[in-house]
Design a protein around this nucleic acid. Structure first.
Ligand SMILES: [Mn+2]
Ligand SMILES: [Mn+2]
Ligand SMILES: [Mn+2]
Ligand SMILES: [Mn+2]
Lengths: 219, 219
DNA sequence: AAATTTTGTTAGATTCGTCTAACTTATATA
DNA sequence: TATATAAGTTAGACGAATCTAACAAAATTT
């Protein structure tokens, strides 16, 4: 399979993300444009190209779905991204809010040997610093968690296993509340009106919004 | 200083290399084009751009010299290149003929923190897997070796400290002769006509050409 | 069913990095 | 010094990735 450009790789990655996350397995032009911070016209051109190359299925005015080669390529990039994040976090002492930005660049380095050696060097990690699963060399990975903190009932406890939002802003906020992966969270109370929650982590109580709670995955 | 493109970075790196290696501290359009495997017309356009940005000094039909900002940028890229080569070699078990190609990509990753953490992780190495000096965070590095195997007299011994040609083809050839960094080489004989040498390394004798000998740095 | 809004497409332009072909200037050679 | 060759420049083109402005189709609301 021919070499994809940096840009094409990013489109496939974004497409996989939104087709999966929407649950419907499909996406629209505007939706993709918004997600990638591009104009619909720009995306439209690229869609014709990706269709031409056999990565996606799509026809004029229709919805976009990913074809197998597109999915595989996207998963490969996600694998690289998460391995690099793990490397930065575990070996170079980056904090979890610093890794994403650099991994966005590193994920595009082309070298099959590098990816496999890196995986081995890291002892074949299964999760990245944000709790997201790392696909293996065959593209297989654990299904993502579905339950978020916002769904935990009053008085109940849950363990934080991942974050949905990977932005530095959010991650710093999470740290500020004294929260990290694998911490146990107890829901003390929840407002009926706006779902504002009081949670307790390691004995420390904090107020968190619905938006916050929806971005914390728990089990 | 504004962000340079991948391409601009490569021009500066190539320019530093040829201005230094020529000894004259200057380069010509065609020379640079040949070195980068581009057409002179292409290079000409870029030269106007790099001049405009203050990285080089050059006027129509004249020679190119590098200005301080250009040198600093080029040295920074060389630092990254050599640190990555060292990482691949020392930590990921790449062979010395495999590292260059991947480092050509990695050298363009933008993150000051990454470079410094990588240097620390590698324990601030001073030389890369080919024996080339790694500039420190201030751009300072040991002056390069000048003497090559071709200058060693018959019956004399010398220690190999670096290679000039970093191509996989050459490096594999060097390994084939049983030669590696820090090995002691004894010159057994040399033909007057074509400088073909017989050398001895770890008790093993081999015939090597002038071209080969000129690409091995020794002290 | 008509009107409005949302979604998606097309045409035309721009920037970057590259090329070929034609031209100009500088250098080397007879 | 005249001519030939080497080195360097310019004009015009192109593909990739982006944009804006105008248009078309589909979906939603009245
Ligand atoms: Mn990430
Ligand atoms: Mn990316
Ligand atoms: Mn190299
Ligand atoms: Mn490069």
């Amino acid at each position: 399979m021919m070499q994809l450009s940096y840009t094409e790789e990013n489109y496939l990655k974004a497409l996989l993300k939104i087709t999966y996350e929407s649950g419907k397995g499909q996406a629209g032009t505007n939706e993709l444009a918004t997600h990638m911070d591009l104009k619909p016209a720009t995306v439209n051109d690229m869609l014709r190209k990706l269709k031409e190359k056999g990565f996606i299925s799509y026809q004029k005015y229709g919805k976009i779905t990913m074809l197998e080669p597109g999915k595989l390529k996207a998963i490969e990039i996600i694998r690289k991204h998460r391995l690099w994040e793990t490397f930065l976090y575990k070996k170079l002492e980056f904090t979890w809010d610093e890794v994403h930005e650099v991994a966005e660049q590193l994920e595009h380095i082309q070298s099959a040997k590098l990816v496999e050696r890196l995986a081995k060097f890291l002892d074949f990690p299964e999760f990245d610093p944000h709790g997201d699963p790392i696909p293996d060399e065959n593209g297989l990975f654990k299904v993502k968690h579905k339950k978020t903190l916002s769904e935990v009932g009053i008085g109940k406890k849950a363990k934080m296993v991942a974050v949905k939002d990977n932005s530095s802003l959010f991650l710093k906020y999470v740290m500020g509340v004294g929260l990290g992966l694998n911490n146990v969270i107890k829901v003390i109370s929840k407002q009926d009106y706006d779902s504002l929650m009081v949670i307790e982590v390691n004995g420390k109580r904090s107020n968190v919004s619905l938006k916050f709670a929806e971005n914390i995955y728990v089990i």
